[in-house]
Nucleic acid binder design. Structure first.
Length: 820
DNA sequence: GCCTGAATGTAT
DNA sequence: TACATTCAGGCT
C-alpha cells in the first residue's frame, strides 16, 4: 500500500472504510482528520482512520490499483478527533456490527460536515414557461418563489407520491437545472464583531468629538477591545465604532465566542435532594457508608489503573456525594472526569448543580442544548478548557483528554442504549474507554442491571454497597393491592382501588402531594363493537389503536396513524362501541372525579411534547401548585419531589405482560425507583402498588426493596433460559414487504449463522417479531445465543456480507436491552 | 443514505 | 412509442 493512500470512514450506513489517494498538494492527513471525498456522484465529509484497523476488513481488495479516487480536500490540518476517540468509535462499530462511518458520526460535534446536495433552479426556458399544468406547474411556481431549492425539499413540498417523477420530467425537458453545490461548514463557531484601538488611536494626544471621544476613552481602558453588545450596554451604538474605525483610530475584527448554555438555564428550579445537597455545601459530613464507599473507590482511583466499581446504593443513600468526592480527587491528580447520566435526568437545572460544584470548567452535553451550543461545548472539551463533562449516552465519546474517572449514574437505565445504529450501550463503551486509558469507572444504581451485578459477583467489578438512606430516613412503606379482589367486589371497570382512593384523600387532606404512575398513555387501550367484536386496529401496524378522549381520536402509538372516534362500528354498523383497558388519561379523569378540588396535572408524551418541557411541571410541583401528578415513567425517573408522601402505581403489570426476557427486571426497577420517590423529605412515605399478580417475584422483592432476593430469582430464570448474563445474545430483525419475504430472508441468514463452524453458537428462530408489522413493514427475527461474542459476531457478519443485497432490511442488536 | 440507470408499467 | 414509476445495486 502506497503511503499516499488513506483509509476513510464515510457517513454511509454499511459501507466499509474506503481508500483514497492523497494528491501531492496535500500533506497526508492523520487518523481523526476530516476529509472531503467523492462517494458516487456525491461529496461527503469522511474521517481518516488508521491503516489496517484490526477489526475492519481491508477495503482495497476489490479495487484495481490506479483507479482510486483522490481526496478533494483536507478539512483538518491536524486531526480534529483525538486518536483515543477514533479507536473507541471503531471498537464500537466492530462490536455492535455497525459501519465505521456511523460510529464516527456519533462521536462528532454537530455542524462539522461539508457535503454536496442536489439543488434545482429554473432555467430560462423554465422561467418563460406558462404551459405546464398540475404538479409540474406547482414545482415551477415553487422555484419561482424560492429561486433555488434542494431536490428533497422540493419533493417534500409538492406533497405527492409522483413528485419525484415530475421533477425528473422537468429536468429532462430542460425547464429546471440541477447542480450539486457544497453545503455545510467545517465548523460552526459564532463570531462577533469587536472594536479595539489601533496604535494610532492609543496615542493620548488624539481626541475626537463627543460620542467618538467617549468611545475612545472606553477603549483606552479595554485593551482586549469591546463587542457591539458591550458597547450597547454603555449606550454607544455600533455606528460610532464604525466611524472611529474609518478614521483609522480603531480596528474592527471578528472574534470567536462560545455559546454559553448556562446563560439560559433556569435558576432556582427544583432539584433532587440527592443532587442538590452536596453541591451547595461541598464539604458536608458523610454517613459511615458513604465514607467507606469513598475510601474504597478512592483507593482504586489512586492506583491509576483500569478498574470498575459498582456503587450499589438504595435511593436516597447519597450516591451523588460519593461521585463528587471522587471527581474532586481525580482532578487533584490532574486527571479529568466524565459523568454519564440518563437522558431524562439531565435537565438544565441538574446541570447547574455540577456547575455549582466544579465551576466553569464543566461542560454539559444534553439534548436540550442547541446544535450550536453542543458544538461549542465539544470544542471547549477538545481544547482542554474543561475538567468535567456531564452528559448523556453520546458524551462517552467526548474528546476529553486524560480521563481518570468515568461515572455512569443509574447505569441500569435504558436510555444508555441507542435504539438506532450503532446500537451501543453507553455504560459498556465507557468501560472499554476506561480500559484503554487506565481509568476508574464507577457504575451507580439502586437496581443494577443483572449483567452489572453478575460482573461484581464474579469479582470483575468491585462491589460497594450503601444500604441506608442519608439521615437514616426510613424507606417508604409499600402496600400491594390485589386487584383481583377489587374487581371481584367492585366490578372489572374500576381503575383506582379502595386503598389508593382512601390514601389519596387522606394525604391531600393533610396538604401533602401525591404521584400516580401508569406506564401507558391514552384513555382506553381498545375500542371494539359489542355486536360483531370488530376492534379498531392500526392499518399499518399489528396493534390496536389507543383511544384518546381529549383529541377524540384513536391513535397508533407506533406510527401515529389516527382516526376520529367512530360513533358506530365501521364493519357492521353496530351502535354499541365498547372501550376497555385504561391509560393515564383515564387515571387523570378518575382522580379529578374523586377529588374535584385537587389540582391534578398529567405528564406523558401527549402533554409534554418537547423534551425538556417537563421542567415547568417540576417547578410547579416544587412550588406546591400541583396536588396530584399523574403520568408515565417520565415522572418516575430522576426527579425528586420532597413533599410527595404518596406514590400510587395503578398497574404494576404493564411491563410484566411483555414477551421480553427483561420484563421482570424492568418491573422490579420501576417499582423500586418509584417507591423510592415517596417520602424523601422529613415525612415518611407510602407507596401503593396495584397488581393482578401480587405474588410475582418482581413485585414481592420490590415491595421489600430486596435487590439480592430479586437477583437470585431472576438469575435462575436467565440461567435456565440461557439469557444474559448467563449467555450472550444478539437479536436480528429482518424487515420485508410481506411476512413471507421477511421470514425467508431471516431463515436464510439464520441458516448461514448455524453453518458457522463454532460449536457453542445457538440460533433460535426465525419467528415473526412480537410486533409483526410496524409502519406497514413486516418483521421477522431470530436470536443468536452463545458464550463467545466474537465468534457470534463473526458468524453473523459473514452471513450479512453474503446477503449484501438485503443489507437495508436487516437490523442487528448486540446485547439487546429489549427484544420487542 | 443518496444517486443512478435499468426494468417494468401506463397512457397515447 | 414516449413517458412515468419502481427498484436494486454501488459507492474506493
Amino acid at each position: 500500500v502506497s503511503v499516499r493512500h488513506v483509509q476513510v470512514a464515510v457517513p454511509v450506513p454499511g459501507l466499509p472504510p474506503l481508500t483514497y489517494r492523497v494528491p501531492e498538494r496535500f500533506e497526508i492527513p492523520g487518523p481523526g482528520a476530516r476529509v472531503l471525498v467523492p462517494v458516487g456522484t456525491r461529496k461527503v465529509t469522511g474521517w481518516v482512520i488508521p491503516h489496517q484497523h484490526q477489526h475492519l476488513a481491508p477495503s482495497t481488495q476489490h479495487v484495481a490499483p490506479g483507479t482510486l479516487k483522490d481526496l478533494l480536500e483536507v478539512l483538518d490540518p491536524s486531526p480534529l478527533l483525538p486518536r483515543e476517540i477514533v479507536d473507541l468509535a471503531l471498537w464500537t462499530a466492530d462490536y455492535y456490527l455497525a459501519g465505521p462511518g456511523e460510529a464516527l458520526a456519533t462521536a462528532m460535534p454537530p455542524q462539522s460536515a461539508v457535503f454536496s446536495r442536489r439543488v434545482v433552479s429554473l432555467t430560462d426556458a423554465g422561467r418563460a414557461n406558462e404551459l405546464q399544468v398540475g404538479l409540474r406547474r406547482r414545482a415551477l411556481d415553487l422555484l419561482r418563489e424560492h429561486g433555488t431549492l434542494a431536490v428533497d425539499s422540493l419533493i417534500r413540498r409538492l406533497e405527492d407520491r409522483t413528485a419525484k417523477g415530475a421533477v425528473d420530467g422537468l429536468l429532462r425537458d430542460g425547464l429546471i437545472a440541477m447542480t450539486q453545490p457544497l453545503e455545510g461548514r467545517r465548523e460552526a463557531f459564532r463570531t462577533v464583531a469587536r472594536v479595539r484601538l489601533t496604535a494610532l488611536g492609543d496615542d493620548p494626544a488624539v481626541t475626537r468629538p463627543k460620542r467618538q471621544g467617549e468611545l475612545l476613552a472606553l477603549l483606552r481602558g479595554a485593551p482586549d477591545g469591546l463587542t457591539a453588545r458591550e458597547l450597547d450596554a454603555r449606550g454607544i451604538g455600533w455606528d460610532v465604532a464604525k466611524r472611529l474605525a474609518a478614521s483609522g483610530l480603531a480596528a474592527i475584527d471578528q472574534v470567536r465566542i462560545d455559546r454559553d448554555p448556562f446563560a439560559t438555564a433556569a435558576p432556582g428550579t427544583a432539584l433532587s435532594t440527592e443532587h442538590s445537597a452536596p453541591s451547595t455545601q461541598h464539604r458536608r459530613s458523610l454517613t459511615d457508608e458513604q465514607t467507606a464507599a469513598v475510601e474504597t473507590l478512592t483507593s482504586l482511583l489512586d492506583a491509576k489503573a483500569f478498574a470498575v466499581g459498582l456503587l450499589h446504593g438504595v435511593t436516597g443513600s447519597g450516591k451523588t456525594e460519593v461521585y463528587l468526592r471522587l471527581a474532586a480527587r481525580a482532578m487533584e491528580q490532574g486527571r479529568r472526569v466524565l459523568i454519564l447520566v440518563p437522558e431524562i435526568a439531565l435537565t438544565p437545572a441538574a446541570a447547574a448543580i455540577f456547575r455549582g460544584a466544579f465551576g466553569d470548567r464543566v461542560a454539559i452535553q444534553h439534548s436540550a442544548l442547541s446544535d450550536g451550543e453542543r458544538h461549542d461545548q465539544w470544542h471547549r472539551i477538545r481544547r482542554g478548557d474543561v475538567d468535567v463533562v456531564v452528559g448523556t449516552r453520546s458524551a462517552v465519546f467526548a474528546p476529553l483528554p486524560d480521563v481518570g474517572l468515568i461515572v455512569v449514574d443509574e447505569e441500569h437505565d435504558g436510555s444508555f442504549k441507542q435504539d438506532e445504529s450503532p446500537r451501543y450501550h453507553g455504560r459498556d463503551v465507557a468501560v472499554v474507554r476506561a480500559r484503554s486509558v487506565g481509568a476508574l469507572v464507577v457504575l451507580g444504581s439502586a437496581t443494577p442491571a443483572l449483567e452489572t451485578f453478575e460482573n461484581a459477583r464474579q469479582g470483575r467489578y468491585r462491589l460497594v454497597t450503601m444500604a441506608r438512606r442519608v439521615m437514616d430516613r426510613p424507606m417508604a412503606a409499600v402496600q400491594v393491592v390485589d386487584m383481583r379482589e377489587e374487581y371481584a367486589e367492585l366490578g372489572a371497570d374500576i381503575v383506582l382501588s379502595r386503598p389508593l382512593e382512601e390514601a389519596l384523600k387522606a394525604h391531600l387532606a393533610r396538604g401533602e402531594q401525591a404521584v400516580v404512575l401508569l406506564n401507558r398513555r391514552g384513555f382506553a387501550t381498545l375500542m371494539f363493537c359489542r355486536q360483531c367484536g370488530h376492534s379498531l386496529e392500526c392499518p399499518n401496524c399489528s396493534l390496536s389503536l389507543t383511544i384518546h378522549k381529549a383529541t377524540r381520536r384513536a391513535r397508533c402509538h407506533y406510527c401515529n396513524h389516527a382516526v376520529p372516534l367512530p360513533g358506530k362500528c365501521v364493519k357492521c354498523g353496530g351502535e354499541f362501541m365498547e372501550q376497555s383497558g385504561f391509560g393515564t388519561e383515564r387515571v387523570e379523569a378518575e382522580i379529578r372525579a374523586l377529588l374535584p378540588e385537587a389540582r391534578v396535572t398529567r405528564v406523558d408524551r401527549d402533554t409534554v411534547r418537547r423534551r425538556g418541557a417537563i421542567s415547568g411541571v417540576i417547578e410547579a410541583m416544587a412550588a406546591r401548585k400541583i396536588d396530584v401528578l399523574v403520568g408515565t415513567q417520565m415522572i418516575a425517573k430522576g426527579h425528586d419531589f420532597p413533599a410527595v408522601t404518596l406514590v400510587g402505581v395503578v398497574s404494576a403489570d404493564v411491563g410484566l405482560g411483555m414477551p421480553d426476557f427483561r420484563a421482570g427486571e424492568r418491573t422490579f426497577q420501576l417499582l423500586t425507583q418509584v417507591s423510592g420517590r415517596a417520602g424523601r423529605g422529613d415525612k415518611p412515605g407510602l407507596a401503593i402498588v396495584q397488581t393482578l399478580f401480587p405474588k410475582h417475584y418482581s413485585i414481592q422483592h420490590a415491595t421489600r426493596q430486596d435487590y439480592a432476593g430479586f437477583f437470585e430469582d431472576e438469575f435462575k430464570f436467565r440461567r435456565a433460559m440461557r439469557y444474559p448474563p448467563a449467555a450472550s445474545l444478539i437479536n436480528v430483525v429482518v424487515r420485508g414487504p410481506s411476512a413471507g419475504e421477511a421470514m425467508d430472508l431471516a431463515a436464510d441468514l439464520a441458516k448461514r449463522v448455524r453453518q458457522a463452524p463454532s460449536p457453542d453458537i445457538r440460533v433460535l428462530g426465525p419467528a415473526p417479531a412480537p410486533l409483526a408489522r410496524i409502519k406497514g413493514e413486516h418483521r421477522a427475527q431470530f436470536f443468536i445465543k452463545g458464550t463467545h461474542r466474537a465468534r457470534m459476531r463473526d458468524a453473523l457478519r459473514a452471513a450479512v456480507e453474503d446477503r449484501a443485497d438485503a443489507r437495508r432490511r436487516i437490523s442487528i442488536d448486540v446485547d439487546p436491552l429489549s427484544v420487542l
